[in-house]
């Protein structure tokens, strides 16, 4: 089992999420995704050193533990077992269950196709002469957060496979004498530095939300970053403890929002507003509409309401649409679309 979990695991003493200065768009986009994984992931665009991976890692620590079949290579949910586990149940086995925290599974840029998808199990082939599947990173990422740093530098065909799995929640392997599919439903977080090249439009579109992070401009805030960073380095444990309460509050709020999520309804005019904004801004296709709506519903849940308003739609649009607007060649992505939305 260890083979497939070798992807970098979480640092036990991560910088606390609550202590990250500013970067509110990014934080909100991440939270929306963990409250409602159906939103479809987030693409974080921005320079190096803007707390992107810190935020992802520390957020995972705030998430409630989830019951997991202990020895399932796909970390499946005992209440919704994967077919392999279902077979075991049918055979009269009892599945060992344990409460596990959400992990951040990392996909390194240099990963090969076999590592991502899984491959032929060498040991089984040699010892038993059987073509058996050895699960890859997509299997390990099921029900976890899959973090892809510099997603724009990933080989094209890997990105294709990755986003296929992200869209379907299933990884289908048809190679090297292996033919199977397994659950691979994860919260996809990708980061990229646009200066190093763009992501293909089809791939960008598959990310639910997109935010831009910038180095902080306000000197006071920058100072605050340094102060906190130094405090953290001097005594991580004390620092973590000092921020523990706020972190717990966020964790609880996420848990509450998750519970609330199924009962959130779209208020009057919300659907119409979604469509008006999409048409008004000229986004392609319908995927944007759906993400926008889900984003608005999730925002309402996050704020403890059971009805999403048109205001939620307008706010969600800032996260759900920037990467879906048609752009000029090589032009920067527009993130300041608030005015345009207001005019619609």
């Amino acid at each position: 089992m260890d083979k497939q979990t070798s992807a970098k695991s979480m640092n036990p003493a991560a910088y606390p999420f609550a202590a990250i200065v500013d970067q509110n768009d990014m934080k909100l986009a991440l939270i929306i995704n963990v409250v409602n994984p159906k939103v479809g992931g987030v693409l974080i665009r921005g320079e190096k050193g803007t707390a992107k991976s810190t935020a992802v890692r520390s957020l995972a620590r705030l998430l409630p533990a989830q019951p997991t079949v202990a020895d399932c290579p796909y970390n499946c949910d005992p209440a919704l077992p994967c077919p392999a586990c279902r077979e075991r149940l049918a055979a009269g086995e009892t599945l060992p269950v344990e409460e596990r925290r959400v992990r951040v599974v990392e996909l390194p840029v240099g990963a090969t196709e076999d590592r991502l998808l899984g491959t032929l199990d060498l040991e089984a082939a040699l010892s038993e002469g059987e073509a058996r599947f050895s699960p890859g990173i997509l299997a390990a990422a099921n029900r976890q957060i899959l973090y892809v740093d510099e997603v724009n530098l990933l080989d094209d065909h890997l990105v294709d496979v990755l986003l296929d799995a992200a869209a379907m929640g299933v990884n289908t392997v048809e190679r090297e004498s292996v033919s199977l599919s397994h659950p691979a439903s994860f919260t996809l977080v990708g980061t990229m530095n646009p200066e190093e090249g763009e992501l293909r439009p089809q791939l960008t579109d598959r990310f639910g939300l997109c935010v831009q992070v910038k180095g902080l401009a306000d000197p006071a805030l920058r100072q605050e970053v340094i102060v906190r960073q130094l405090a953290w380095e001097a005594d991580p444990a004390a620092f973590a403890a000092a921020w523990g309460e706020e972190g717990d509050a966020i964790g609880e709020a996420i848990a509450t929002a998750r519970e609330l999520m199924p009962s959130v309804q779209a208020g009057p005019g919300v659907l119409e507003r979604v469509v008006a904004i999409s048409l008004g801004l000229g986004t392609d296709g319908h995927r944007g509409d759906l993400t926008l709506l889900k984003g608005a519903l999730t925002l309402a849940a996050w704020e403890g309401r059971t009805e999403a308003t048109t205001g939620d739609v307008d706010r969600a649009a800032l996260l759900a649409l920037p990467h879906r607007l048609r752009r000029r060649p090589l032009a920067e992505m527009e993130f300041d679309i608030a005015d345009k939305i207001k005019r619609i």
């Binding site: 994967c82 077919p83 392999a84 058996r132 379907m168 299933v170 033919s179 199977l180 397994h182 659950p183």
Partner: peptide, 12 residues
């Protein structure tokens, strides 16, 4: 454990 073939219909 032998992984099953083609899961989706049951779950989706």
């Amino acid at each position: 454990m032998k992984p099953p073939r083609n899961i989706p219909p049951a779950t989706q």
